[in-house]
Amino acid sequence: MDAYSDHIPVMLEEVMHWIAPRPGGFYMDATLGLGGHAARLMELTNGQARLLGLDRDEQALAKAGERLAQYGENVQLAHTSFQHFSRALREVGWDKLDGVIADLGVSSLQLDSPERGFSFLQDGPLDMRMDPGSGGEPASVIVNGASFERLRQLLWDYGEEPMAGRIAGAIVKIRETARIDSTLELARIVAAAYPAKRRALSRNHPATKTFQALRLEVNQELREVEFFLERIVDHLRPGARICVISFHSLEDRIVKRAFRKESSACLCPREYPVCQCGHTQKLRLPFRKPLIPTEDEMRANSRSRSAKLRVAERVDGETR
């Protein structure tokens, strides 16, 4: 079985509908992963679109490259985080884009590789770095070195974990006698910190939110999303669309806020009688509430259950 035969891109047809790729167009997949969305985009344009794929995970980028190799020079790949997209555009000599796809969050390849440390269902080192070669600190450094208060705040802010204090306390107590270096070990500590009744009634594994919080912190994901969305709009041609898929409320909130800001002609407080901000509308929102996967997709791909798709379209920048 090849590296992507069981990879199911989330909300694939919905994304393609809104991107509406055409031959000769210039597109960017800002979070390439295993290349599912990119491959479909190239297929729909008979390989005649131009695609730039970004990913900071070298392993995923290599596998996506194999998948997209048939399209030759029409597909360009860059090993980088999407926050550095403008540099990647300069390197390939592009400026404006006809469409952008960003599928946020952890990839199937990362979840299914125990040695990467993303999954609480398989034993592996407590790592969680999307780009292990970047020199960034793995999750084990936070778990074994952060203060109780930092751990508690991290789990509350990035995991929206109601048991943040209990979990942080349990981690601090355990590490007084031994380091916590494996995913299953941390998952057991978190599960034991949960009250038995809440644990029994929980729909998800008790460690879900803790692992999410650590992953977001290790990879600085929310900051990167904000940085990306603040800058990508100026690289869209009029009529170009950006499709962003998020998987939890923190990401979706950032996308929603960024799109609404750029779809407004004025950012002044309502009590101002005359606009003083000088802001110009750059985006149009085809719909306000996010799209979610169909029941059929959620049954076929359980990882799509929490997905939300938001779309924005670039206007000419003169609307007031």
Results as ranks from 00 to 15, higher is better:
P21L: 09
S81A: 11
E14G: 06
D234P: 04
T177D: 11
E251R: 09
L309H: 03
D181G: 09
R203M: 12
M1F: 11
G136Q: 12
Q212T: 10
R188T: 03
I167C: 02
A30N: 02
P273A: 12
L89T: 03
A78I: 07
V75C: 01
S263Y: 06
N219S: 05
E230K: 14
F247Q: 02
H235I: 08
F287H: 11
D29I: 12
W156Y: 11
E43F: 00
A62S: 14
L41F: 09
A88M: 00
R257C: 02
D131N: 15
H235Y: 15
Q48S: 11
A146M: 08
P23Q: 13
A258F: 02
L201A: 15
A139C: 09
G53Q: 01
I167P: 01
L214I: 05
V311M: 00
P162K: 13
M298A: 05
G124P: 08
I167Q: 00
S202N: 15
V143G: 08
I101F: 07
G317V: 05
T208M: 08
R231P: 02
A312T: 10
G72H: 09
P206Y: 03
E43P: 01
R241V: 03
R231F: 08
E313K: 04
P293A: 09
Y4C: 03
D296G: 11
R87F: 15
R56V: 01
R288M: 13
G72M: 13
I171W: 05
R22E: 15
D57A: 04
D296C: 04
D6P: 05
R198C: 07
A192E: 11
A200L: 09
A187P: 04
C266V: 07
I232V: 14
D57E: 00
A88C: 07
